[in-house]
Write a protein that binds this DNA or RNA. Structure first.
Lengths: 225, 225
DNA sequence: TTAAAGCATGAATAATCTATGAAAGATATT
DNA sequence: AATATCTTTCATAGATTATTCATGCTTTAA
């Protein structure tokens, strides 16, 4: 990985003290750190800030860490996001394990800065080595009529396939609604404007929210990474 | 077996927690995992995703595991698919056995990840050794006008032969109805759209449902394995 | 700050497409 | 010519896809 790359970390905890301690220590090491105070905020934040690591308190109001982790794991957009749980030593560990939601690590409270930093470092190094960390690749095979995302097939019905195929044909370039109509629908059929939106939505559901960008008032584009 | 081959596993359970735990643990081992929440969904999924192993909850709404297993065993397409039942320890074991529908293994709930993984591994290894596990081969000999499936001749009338021959000439590639008309019927005769469907059906009756795939709104393709 | 425009989203409806059973039309075979 | 086999059509049912609609959110511009 680029040596200048600064790892991004999201801290989610309802206690301000904890947030402060973590933020201070992690920033000191050169990480880019954002903090939020509950699970709902966390998911919101993730829409604009995609970190390499999320440190999640298990017990939180609104939405606990386990649930947040589930959401993250379910989403297509965060395939290689590391999740670490913050647990009080007294917390019933077995319960967390039973509900295993896909955490990569557990960090115990109270926090010992030195220990914390070395664990974080280890986790991030692991990510660097992790082969799943290749760039998110999407491949469209028109002959086979198949789409692959990181070598796993994504099944798309015709219109969605054609739409994605179009957008991906010129990554980064904005396609206006008119262009999309022309290419995907042709001149015969006329459909309402919302139809495109709906197909875009379905695509996003399947390949993740971060690939297709809306350019308001203009159109859509497929974002190259 | 190819060392790069990733085993595919289908998990069928109505409880989301169980699905999540299984999926997480199995994926961590490198398996390709799909989950569905009931028997009906399972049979549907099997049309597009042919796994090596199915893990089936016994008790489910809609259609219980036993019935799903029966269906699987009856079908021609899943001759060497391993089926494992998930059973609660408290469940009346004898009843399940009485209804024995051809399960290869029983896995007990609650799930113990380590144990689960070692059992799965064992089951899949067994499959590797199983001689019935030769790859499904279909060969078309245009000169002799004969088709062989696993060295046994399949007798096909002309149109069916031509159709299969066409599809199999480029495995994985979708042939549109137009292309099929052109190649199999030529420009002289004109037949209705349904005619192709019917020939496809007959082919499927003879060589199994899992080889010829429908791409809705586009055409058909012969699935490479 | 408010109003307007543009988009996202959930849910309902409409349109499309294919599978299937059955039967009629061809073609070849005896 | 009669029979059997192959090819095609047709009607229907079932499922999937495509589209619309109503509502709410977010951004933009006044």
């Amino acid at each position: 990985m680029n040596p200048d790359y600064k790892y991004k970390i999201l801290v989610v905890d309802d206690e301000e003290d904890i947030r402060t301690i973590l933020e201070f220590n992690l920033k000191k090491e050169g990480y880019i750190v954002k903090t939020v105070e509950n699970g709902v905020e966390a998911l919101k934040k993730l829409k604009t800030f995609v970190p390499d690591l999320v440190i999640l308190d298990v017990m939180m109001p609104e939405m606990d860490g386990i649930e947040v982790c589930r959401e993250i794991r379910q989403s297509n957009d965060f395939k290689n996001l590391i999740v670490a749980f913050l647990t009080a030593r007294t917390e019933d560990y077995s319960q967390i394990a039973g509900f295993d939601a896909g955490a990569d690590a557990y960090i115990e409270k109270p926090i010992r800065p030195r220990l914390l930093l070395s664990r974080v470092k280890a986790l991030l190094r692991r990510k660097d080595l992790n082969p799943t960390n290749q760039k998110q690749s999407i491949q469209v095979d028109r002959e086979k009529y198949m789409v692959f995302q990181n070598d796993e097939e994504v099944v798309l019905p015709k219109k969605e396939f054609e739409l994605l195929s179009l957008l991906i044909s010129r990554p980064g370039i904005v396609f206006t609604r008119e262009m999309i109509f022309d290419e995907v629908w042709g001149n015969e059929t006329i459909v309402g404007d919302r139809t495109i939106d709906v197909h875009i939505r379905k695509l996003r559901e399947k390949i993740g929210d971060n690939r297709i960008k809306t350019v308001k008032g203009v159109g859509y584009k497929f974002e190259e990474i």
